[in-house]
Design a protein around this nucleic acid. Structure first.
Lengths: 203, 203
DNA sequence: ATTAAGTTTAACCATATGGTTAACAAAATT
DNA sequence: AATTTTGTTAACCATATGGTTAAACTTAAT
């Protein structure tokens, strides 16, 4: 973390910890399992990260700082609302397809410990909704879109983009869809979702 | 479970287990904590439910059979598509406001162990999408709504309804909204969401 | 009143688990 | 080359945890 050189071991640990924590969560993860996956002695985990909690926080912060900046595309970009929605939806779904564990990991752990987000706010570039609020307000005032609050629209955009990844086992079961078909369905959502949203706010 | 009479203890245990499991998950829950909350000796847990796993399954099945039938309102009701969306959205959000832990619990535990849903399918009334598929196909063919697959529409409906509960800590942080305001925002969604969906599929 | 069955308790057990220690090896510094 | 610092290991430790047991107690049937 601080005193160590460019160490390889430290990275190995973080990589292994990422995999284990992201698939099993803080409570389900075992230090021994992380050590095994990293091919190192368990004591090394403590040598580099002191405790399970700190190792977890390192993993969480990294995950969060990977996910959060993506939201700047919708919140702080200068493009038009319609372009934003199109681009964000396309890029975000592409991004999550490459990191399918991410949203669920973050949501799960934030629910386990909601106060944790305060710690994060001070350590990570944290997106802010203010600019987006202004933009939506203006579009509504100009009668370009239906009357909707920025918050509700933001929630809807996030919901439509993220939920299918978080709830995949549930959705697969209800729709009787296998893994392959589900992947195609997610792929199709890159366009489907933005069409859906844009239509929803059109007058 | 089987040999026992109308026992009160058994119910106390299940109630306590519900609270603990639903807020901490299988991995985070402790048998001792459940016993404490139920005001009984820890051995009683095993006397009535044999193991942590079986107690957990009892809780999960009960939660699932509470949540799943709600979906029949959208999948197997006889009303028109528009009515369905209106009613479902309103009822479902009301329902989840009363059981805020439910969706997250089920999603989290299904992600932890996706095979688990197979066990459930045999034990619980399990909604099926077929009827809804026909209905959507007909509405599309009749040009009453835009071209959309039943699966994608179903996912969108679930996403917009459930996600705000599952991701509340995240959304609260990004939008800088406090608990009280968030509750009002959820309340407003009973109508907002159905308007949003209906507008989205209108031609 | 006696017995049998079901219920409850305290004490106990084996193992898993996060974490520590002391000795040792390898670099880096002098 | 000698010494200090950093990295690594195996063995160990204290505690937490799911689960068991045997005995005590309660209830209801005989």
């Amino acid at each position: 973390m601080t005193k160590h050189k460019d160490n390889k071991t430290e990275e190995q640990i973080l990589k292994a910890a990422q995999k284990i924590f992201q698939s099993k969560g803080m409570d389900g993860a075992r230090m021994q399992e992380i050590a095994d996956k990293a091919n190192i002695n368990k004591a090394m985990l403590h040598y580099y990260y002191r405790s399970k909690q700190l190792l977890f926080e390192a993993v969480f912060k990294k995950a969060f700082s990977l996910l959060a900046p993506q939201l700047n595309a919708i919140l702080n970009d200068d493009s038009s609302l319609e372009d934003k929605i199109k681009n964000f939806t396309h890029n975000y779904i592409s991004f999550i397809i490459k990191h399918p564990y991410l949203p669920n990991f973050i949501i799960q752990e934030l629910n386990r410990n909601p106060d944790f987000i305060e710690k994060i706010k001070n350590n990570v570039a944290f997106p802010n909704i203010n600019k987006f609020k202004l933009q939506v307000k203006n579009e509504v005032k100009a009668s370009n879109i239906v009357s909707i609050s920025a918050e509700q629209l933001f929630i809807n955009i996030l919901a439509l983009n993220i939920f299918p990844f978080v709830a995949s086992p549930l959705i697969k079961a209800f729709t009787d869809i296998d893994d392959k078909t589900y992947k195609m369905l997610l792929e199709a959502r890159k366009k489907e979702v933005s069409d859906f949203i844009i239509n929803a706010i059109k007058k």
